[in-house]
Design a protein around this nucleic acid. Structure first.
Length: 355
DNA sequence: TCTGGGGTCCTAGGACCC
DNA sequence: TCTGGGGTCCTAGGACCC
């Protein structure tokens, strides 16, 4: 099994620099009010994504700024994936600008040459720097890719993987997140080697069962090497934070209406009807409550969806105590592809639910 | 390190059916 | 009538990723 992780370095920055030479070779960020993407030169200064632009310019006036151009990035992403598909159809997107590629058997016995060719082609045809990590599994390809940045290629073969594995820090693992890391640390576990004395039972006392499996697989070297080709999207969503926290009914209902509208807009020209609705509220103590319900076949318009959303909102009991509301959001779940209207065998058969 | 927004997947528990 | 087991579906919540 040979997995490649391919990823454009500083994606937004690289697209802007391709189009505009004066953005090159200097600290540069793509930012609206906060930094969306910082060049490696800017990162050296201490700039990072999420930083308010005003603070950046106050401290480092030499930083050059360009506003984000989302359509440009989407198109660059599409071109990138078209390029990936020339190497293998077995690819699992991680985001607009990165993917895992299963290149097993497609590398002519030389995955390094394949990866180098991919990088060269991306540079020549798209003008973008793509870093590639090559390894046995997705985790290790991702780790190799991290080491490859910027603009490099790193291979971690089985031998090297076995050397590196014990010292791997748990907080650096792909798939081990911010909820799990503190629990592991509290239990005295910091590296993969620390997992050696543990099994399903002992780890289950520390983290949830799915995470137990993830951790043991990493420790045993049987972690996931399956590249999953995504089907059609399963959901669209929208959420908005509310600041300051509110207990005003009209405010909460107003935000709910807004996010329903945004989510419906996101459906775009998708021919599928949303089959379920989820409503989420977050309180000022960080607690989240959700409600979910089917959307009857008759409900397809924003007003109808909003009625169901209001009912689910009431069901969260948000008015029952003194807490303020800090976020409202909705998710529209889409029917599986086989339920797309027009693909039903008997669309007008009597007695069938109309959904 | 944090915030914010858009996604995916998994699990526990209960209901229901056979 | 009672018991048990298995499968499936639904809901609420949790965790992760970029």
């Amino acid at each position: 099994m040979v997995i490649a992780h391919a990823d454009v370095d500083a994606f937004f920055v690289s697209v802007e620099r391709r189009d505009t030479p004066r953005y090159r070779d200097r600290p540069f960020v793509v930012a609206a009010e906060v930094v969306a993407c910082a060049s490696y030169e800017a990162r050296e200064l201490g700039v990072h994504a999420g930083m308010p632009l005003a603070r950046v310019l106050h401290r480092w006036p030499e930083v050059v700024v360009a506003p984000p151009r989302d359509e440009r990035y989407s198109r660059a992403g599409e071109e990138l994936f078209a390029l990936f598909r020339r190497y293998t159809p077995l690819l699992q997107p991680g985001s607009m600008e990165e993917a895992f590629l299963d290149v097993t058997g497609r590398d002519g016995g030389d995955p390094v040459a394949l990866a180098a060719g991919l990088r060269r082609t991306a540079r020549r045809e798209l003008g973008l720097p793509v870093s590639v990590g090559l390894a046995r599994s997705k985790l290790w390809a991702k780790l190799a890719g991290r080491r490859a940045k910027p603009d490099g290629l790193v291979v971690i073969d089985a031998e090297r993987e076995a050397e590196l594995r014990p010292a791997l820090r748990l907080e650096g693992l792909w798939g081990v997140g911010p909820r799990t890391v503190p629990r592991l640390h509290e239990a005295g576990l910091f590296t993969v080697a620390d997992l050696a004395g543990h099994d399903e039972t002992s780890l289950a006392a520390i983290v949830p069962t799915a995470m137990v499996r993830t951790l043991l697989a990493i420790a045993r070297g049987t972690d996931d090497a399956t590249v999953r080709i995504p089907g059609p999207r399963r959901s669209v969503s929208a959420q908005r934070t509310i600041s300051p926290p509110t207990r005003t009914r009209s405010t909460v209902l107003g935000v709910l209406g807004t996010v329903v509208g945004l989510a419906v807009d996101r459906l775009g020209h998708d021919p599928r009807r949303p089959s379920r609705l989820e409503v989420t509220v977050r309180f000022d103590d960080g607690t989240i409550r959700t409600g979910r319900a089917p959307l009857p076949g008759a409900v397809a318009d924003p007003a109808g969806i909003e009625r169901v959303a209001r009912r689910l909102l009431e069901g969260t009991g948000w008015e029952d105590d003194g807490r303020g509301v800090t976020l409202a959001g909705v998710v529209l779940f889409l029917a599986a592809a086989r339920e797309v209207p027009g693909q039903l065998a008997l669309p007008f058969a009597p007695g069938l639910p109309d959904g």
